[in-house]
Design a protein around this nucleic acid. Structure first.
Lengths: 153, 153
DNA sequence: CCATAATAGTTACATTTGAAACTAATTCAG
DNA sequence: CTGAATTAGTTTCAAATGTAACTATTATGG
């Protein structure tokens, strides 16, 4: 049995497919809030995390949105400068600071969330409700599997 | 009926989920060939495109792998320097140059493809064959939808 | 033909990103 | 206690990336 040369069919290769899809979607979404609100992707994600779970420390944010601490630190610096979030040093552990949206931040958040949800809705129109659930379930399992593979190498 | 504050549940938000999954998978895969073979993600993608479809011009490559011409140009420059690909100017149109893997490039390609396919296989173990087909079909439809939305804005 | 536009690809500059080193504060081991 | 190790977060420097301008070549309209 000859060892036929394996071909990598890029357009059927899962990592590649995921990467292209995610990038297209992420860019489309970014178009919705980048110019109008002057936010980067990372800044918006930090705001979304705080909108949902505040108060959080910077490392809490990082865990929530799978972003490393350097990226969080930079996004936070930008958001502080724009007055969109507030920082309060923890009196018991002065290394930590809890973060939350400012009034302006909440207002902006309230305007962006509907745009984001509307975009998701339009995207979801490609699928039936059942199919959405299926897609979510399968992608959850892929994610869990990818994490498990990461551990062992 | 009060207009309840919409919450963005980031962990259920499709664009976010796709982005996190794609990034995890892409990083895992990158670990397989980055150190051992000294390739960047873009360089590997160019090699994969050439391994499958060569000869291609730089812009053909860009279309195949959804990468802009500057990124392709840089990846090609790096691969030329490493002697992994060959470039031949088109005699009929001297702006164009067709690209293909060199002997060394083919050898490296032949070693990486099985690693990539094995990783995909391990990832796919999270799903049954039926589920894989379903996932592929649904992600195709999401991709098509995202592209359609891009057109109109 | 000739000037203008279009195309392939590269280069230059500015911004983003990542890795590692660093500061400050806290914990822990002896 | 006290010095070493941890932890939270920031800064620094190098590499990666995107945008726009540029070169070279080919196509096109008058």
């Amino acid at each position: 049995m000859a060892n036929a040369l394996q071909a990598l069919e890029l357009e059927k290769f899962l990592p590649y497919r995921l990467s292209v899809l995610a990038q297209l979607v992420s860019e489309s979404l970014h178009d919705l809030y980048a110019q109008p609100f002057g936010l980067s992707v990372t800044q918006w994600r930090v705001m979304a995390a705080l909108g949902r779970f505040a108060p959080l420390t910077a490392s809490d944010v990082g865990q929530r949105i799978v972003m490393d601490k350097v990226a969080v630190s930079r996004a936070v610096a930008g958001l502080m400068k724009s007055g969109l979030i507030e920082r309060a040093t923890d009196s018991h552990d002065r290394r930590r600071a809890s973060l939350k949206l400012s009034a302006r931040g909440r207002a902006m958040h309230a305007r962006i969330v509907p745009l984001a949800l509307a975009y998701q809705e339009r995207l979801h129109e490609a699928l039936s409700p059942d199919e959405r659930r299926t897609f979510d379930a399968l992608s959850d399992r892929l994610f869990a599997r990818a994490q498990a593979l990461r551990q062992v190498g």
